[in-house]
Amino acid sequence: MVLDRLDITWIALIGLAMATVLVPSVVIRPLLANALLLTFAALKGRRIVLDFLDLRAAPALWRDLVSAWVLIVVLFAWLASAIVALI
């Protein structure tokens, strides 16, 4: 059986999703755990944007807008949690 890009992306997403659930029990420091959780979310989002939504060959405007949405939401969430941790 030959795996194509969609299969590899699905396997990567499953692996990242399972790693996401494990992070809070493995990484004790909240700032680092949050950074890992949100990095995993951004990586999963990127795979969905490029391979499932198939924006790899789409006009750059749509690809960049959707990719920027993922980055902005996870960065904002991390910054908000970092402010709480540092206060």
């Binding site: 996401t20 992070v23 809070p24 755990a33 949050n34 995993f40 979310a41 969430a77 949690s81």
Partner: peptide
């Protein structure tokens, strides 16, 4: 994106 923000981020 929603799952970690709601359930896991501390």
């Amino acid at each position: 994106v929603m799952f970690p923000i709601l359930y896991l981020v501390r």
